[in-house]
Nucleic acid binder design. Structure first.
Length: 788
DNA sequence: ATGAACGCATTTTTT
DNA sequence: ATGCGTTCAT
């Protein structure tokens, strides 16, 4: 292992000399003074406070280049940590671009979790594991906990296993082993919280498995209990870089601090104003405390923003300034003017969706000359249920959209099921995998039969598969379940044997497994709207296998690496949560649903009070600062909340927007004056001046609007699109007749009740009657092979 | 063992 | 409203 502390190698001296000889450092050239300072402050602790859009990734990658260029460290002596695989990948790419193949030699660039796995596999025995331990996903984790809860006579109505999972995660986030949980929390979960936590950890050890939290926790435990091991890594990592430091939890903080203690060369990059993950254990305190934790730290602020127009920045700054206890930054830009942030109220959520849909289309067409691609536009919501109104509307008008951040590919049910089959084929004694698929598809093995297998196997001290095999042999499983269980066990045996055969093709094996198990057939027989998509996902899974040597290799990687970034070529508007939007930017951003209780979220305020409100405010800040040229905030006077209509008040964050940087638009229903969306404005401080503004707002004819369009024409634009809904679509619509059975990706099956131009009226079996563009419809009998 | 009927909660999400 | 998990009837 070339990257191991125990076996140092990396670049040879002559290679280093070659890099050093490459002359002036191009990576320093186009940095601004602050960025340059951050890059050149190589030694000692550095805190880089990087506001939104200030080029922190650029600074970070330049810093790595500089470290290498100055001969301060070899590529494998730099520890560089991110939160997501995506961020790690981007960093690798950018360093690679700066330095060529040297980036290949940076084995310690990755996520907290992937780096922890790497360390843990080397020292697994120190925490009672073998180095080939498996990493459980949250599904397995929960199943395990449920078993333990059931076994300990706890009323799982009052104390759901989910809750316990949350508590254990919380403890692990704080680097607390069962023994270290403070006594003040020992009474949690019916007084058995710590006890169950301990049992859970024991069970994991027996299974030679860890959950995500363990990856960090075990590392910290090892570092703390084995100074010799720690010292090795401390010596090895001459320089440490951390991205998104404001998102670190206590375990990650300890992990870093322990590793940094020898050289103190740690550079943390972050923005306290973008800390939005407190609810999952992130400690803003880590970044606020940095100078105390690392005495003599240099603090460098990146404040020049290269992303947004002055109005957008000013609006965001005005909101975030309300928060107390910030480290404080003032973003500025050299950009000129630009549009003010637009604010508009609507009668209800549907109208809001309709209006945004029209805006998107209008921006896409560019009205006069300029246009934005759909890819350049995003709708950022507080909670994912808000997405629905937009999806419904966009499907109806045929506006292509993509939802970012749904369940990840490998989190989908069908993928996890398939993976469980693969796991079983690779290691037949993977009990969790066995449990998951033994009765999937239905094999007549219900609770009773499965319980019998559990008890039998435990008594015999064998795996569930072995126990099942033995029970079948002895005829202990009754009726039709018995025969099917035998077939299942035989299947696993055959697959496992194929696994051992080095000649065998693992992609074919995977197909065979899904086929012979009846799993594929199960979804083919399923007529719900999701089934075709699931079959597609399975195909994609099998295809992904091609890039690996064998099933084992695939399973190894998949738990941590595989993500959902299928970059589609098709031009689409993005819909996502504010959380998912962090780190992204779009020329045009819509921020709907700014209503008190929804945003800021009532729950956040109830549970975390002022702290919660401030985190919500940071979320508002993140939202606004995603926008490059046009940011539109909106709210509705009425909204259906959990099926009940509720009247809403505009968000308090709207009051915090500096009025000088906001332009209030007239809601569509208001042109005649009178009844409409004006009502909700009353009573808010912003609202008092708002009625005047509403009267004179005719944004489409305003100079600002025209200026915006002029500028947008200078931006890269997509190839001119055909106006939609002409010849082709009418042909599509005319392919149907009233009474036809049809299928729609989202709404499922239905019957055509009317045809109108390129749109069809359809009575859906489940989703009710809707008017939908014909191009989104297929005849029901083709539903299985839709190329969606 | 399995499908239908009822009750209940319901932000945000990476690894 | 809706989905999910539990209970009830087949």
């Amino acid at each position: 292992m070339t990257d191991a502390p125990s076996n140092p190698s990396g670049l040879t001296l002559s290679q280093r000399a070659m890099i050093a000889a490459q002359g002036p450092a191009p990576w320093l050239d186009d940095l601004n003074p602050a960025q340059r300072a951050a890059v050149e402050a190589l030694d000692g602790p550095v805190l880089m406070l990087a506001g939104a859009g200030t080029g922190k990734t650029k600074a970070l990658t330049a810093r790595i280049a500089h470290l290498l260029r100055m001969g301060k460290a070899r590529p494998n002596e730099i520890l560089s940590v991110t939160f997501t695989n995506k961020a790690a990948r981007e960093m690798k790419d950018r360093v690679g671009r700066l330095l060529g193949e040297v980036a290949e030699g940076m084995p310690w660039m990755g996520t907290f979790h992937s780096l922890s796995v790497k360390i843990l596999r080397r020292h697994a025995e120190l925490v009672g594991l073998r180095s080939n331990f498996t990493i459980l996903d949250t599904d397995d984790q929960l199943r395990l906990l449920k078993q333990l809860v059931a076994a300990s006579n706890i009323d799982d109505k009052r104390w759901p296993a989910r809750m316990l999972a949350g508590m254990i995660d919380g403890w692990k986030n704080r680097a607390l082993t069962p023994q270290k949980v403070p006594s003040s929390e020992a009474h949690a979960y019916a007084g058995k919280g710590t006890e169950l936590y301990e049992q859970y950890q024991d069970r994991l050890k027996t299974l030679n498995a860890v959950d995500f939290g363990d990856l960090l926790l075990h590392c910290v435990t090892i570092f703390q209990a084995h100074p010799d091991v720690l010292a090795q890594y401390q010596r090895w990592f001459r320089y440490i870089l951390v991205d998104e430091y404001q998102d670190t939890n206590i375990a990650q903080y300890l992990w870093l601090r322990l590793l940094a203690q020898a050289h103190h060369n740690i550079c943390c990059v972050g923005d306290d104003d973008q800390s939005i993950y407190g609810w999952r254990g992130a400690e803003v305190g880590n970044i606020l405390r940095f100078e105390k934790d690392f005495p003599g730290a240099k603090v460098i602020r990146l404040e020049q923003n290269y992303r947004s127009t002055p109005h957008i920045l000013a609006a965001a700054s005005g909101v975030i300034a309300v928060n107390a206890g910030r480290l404080g930054k003032t973003l500025w830009t050299e950009e000129q003017e630009g549009e003010k942030v637009r604010l508009i109220g609507h009668w209800d959520g549907e109208e809001e969706a309709r209006w945004i849909g029209e805006e998107v289309e209008s921006l896409q067409r560019g009205r006069a000359v300029g246009r934005f691609r759909l890819d350049d536009m995003a709708i950022l919501v507080r909670a994912s249920h808000q997405m629905r109104a937009f999806e419904d509307r966009f499907l109806t008008i045929g506006l292509p959209y993509r939802v970012i951040g749904g369940p990840r590919f490998y989190e989908r049910q069908e993928i996890r099921d398939a993976m469980a089959y693969f796991r079983l084929a690779v290691s037949p004694d993977d009990d969790l995998a066995f449990e998951r698929v033994v009765n999937l598809p239905k094999r007549g093995l219900g609770e009773k039969a499965q319980g019998d297998i559990q008890r039998f196997s435990r008594a015999a001290g064998v795996s569930l598969l072995e126990g099942a095999r033995e029970m079948v042999a002895r005829g202990l499983i009754g009726g039709k379940g018995g025969g099917q269980l035998r077939a299942f066990v035989d299947g696993v045996d055959r697959w496992h044997e194929t696994t051992l055969n080095l000649e065998a093709n693992h992609v074919e094996l995977a197909e065979k497994i899904l086929d012979e198990s009846g799993y594929t057939a199960m979804w083919q027989a399923d007529k719900t709207p999701e089934a075709p998509g699931r079959l597609d996902n399975l195909k994609e899974l099998v295809k992904a296998l091609e890039q690996f040597e064998n099933l084992q290799g695939f399973l190894e990687h998949v738990a941590l690496i595989m993500d959902n970034d299928t970059e589609e070529a098709i031009d689409k508007v993005s819909i996502m949560t504010l959380h998912a939007a962090k780190g992204l930017e779009f020329p045009v951003v819509f921020l709907p649903g700014w209503e008190d209780g929804l945003f800021p979220s009532q729950r956040s305020m109830d549970e975390s009070g002022l702290k919660g409100l401030e985190e919500e405010r940071r979320l508002a800040y993140v939202g606004i600062t995603r926008a490059e040229v046009l940011c539109t905030i909106s709210f509705a006077a009425n909204r259906r909340v959990y099926g009940q209509w509720q009247s809403q008040l505009p968000s308090r964050f709207i009051d915090e927007l500096p009025a000088a940087h906001v332009e209030v638009l007239t809601p569509p229903g208001l042109y005649g004056g009178g009844y409409g969306a004006a009502a909700p404005f009353a009573g808010t401080s912003f609202g008092s001046s708002l009625e005047d503004r509403v009267a004179k707002a005719d944004v489409y004819n305003s100079p600002g609007w025209r200026r915006l369009q002029d500028r947008s024409s200078a931006r890269p634009v997509s190839q001119p699109r055909e106006a939609r809904g002409t010849v082709i679509d009418i042909t599509a619509a005319s392919a149907y007749a009233v009474g036809d059975r049809v299928f729609h990706q989202k709404f499922g099956y239905g019957r055509v009740t009317g045809i109108e131009g390129d749109k069809l009226d359809i009575a859906f079996d489940k989703a009710g009657s809707k008017k939908v563009v014909a191009q989104f419809i297929v005849p029901a009998e083709q539903a299985d092979d839709v190329p969606f």
